[in-house]
């Protein structure tokens, strides 16, 4: 194998370290969410609110009384309209409420931690000079599956958690379930899945060619 140039080694090391950095950041995110879920007192529970979302209409299902205070804000020459979302905060959540508040983003962070870990392993094989191995094809496939699951399930899980939070309260009518999967994430997962299949096929072909004289 030809000796790799210093910039090639530098680039590979940089990529691996960057991926590792993101892996650490997401891992810290998981820890922070866990800490918030377990340790937070009432006040910090308000940091994760419930988005009162729904389409692009400016909250058409709210009574006039609800929306009266959410009019237009004039800031300098710009007119900024408060969008179709508002946040419902829970000032003193119990543990169950904290699980419902922090659980969905925690799951998202966990998925990203696993994805970054897999990407880090792939980058490590690149640094060692042999990334075209079947294991990396499987890692790409797993990444595609995880990202696909995230794209399909993130919003429903969040919405179900939100509904459970406000069930039986006056705020229940404000939370509307609008499920529209993020097609960009799904598309990215499909692309990654296709790349995984190509990668695995390439690794098999290379294995067949190895030892050919």
């Amino acid at each position: 194998m030809a000796e790799r140039s210093w910039w090639s080694r530098l680039g590979n090391g940089l990529v691996e370290n960057l991926v590792y950095l993101f892996f650490c950041l997401f891992a810290i995110g998981v820890l922070l969410h866990l800490a918030a879920m377990v340790l937070s007192n009432g006040s910090s529970g308000t940091s994760e609110g419930i988005a009162l979302a729904g389409g692009h209409d400016p909250m058409p299902w709210l009574d006039r009384g609800d929306s009266a205070e959410w009019g237009l804000q004039r800031i300098g020459p710009l007119v900024v309209e408060l969008g179709p979302q508002a946040r419902l905060s829970i000032p003193d959540p119990g543990f169950g409420q904290r699980v419902l508040l922090f659980g969905p983003p925690l799951l998202g962070h966990l998925i990203m931690v696993v994805v970054m870990f897999l990407l880090w392993r792939i980058a490590a094989t690149q640094r060692r000079g042999d990334p075209f191995i079947p294991a990396n094809g499987r890692r790409l496939g797993l990444m595609a599956a995880l990202i696909g699951v995230y794209g399909l399930a993130a919003d429903p899980v969040k919405d179900l958690a939100d509904r459970a939070l406000v069930a039986g309260t006056a705020a229940a009518r404000l939370v509307r379930f609008d499920y529209l999967p993020d097609l960009r994430i799904i598309g990215f997962a499909l692309l990654l899945g296709a790349l995984s299949a190509i990668f695995r096929r390439g690794a098999v072909l290379r294995r067949d060619v190895e030892g050919l004289v």
Partner: peptide, 22 residues
């Protein structure tokens, strides 16, 4: 016109396949 390394692989029975041209 084959490298000594590849021919050595063939000689020692470590080759998995051989081209018709070789």
């Amino acid at each position: 016109g084959v490298t000594l390394a590849n021919l050595s692989i063939l000689k020692n029975g470590r080759a998995r396949a051989i081209r018709f041209s070789t």
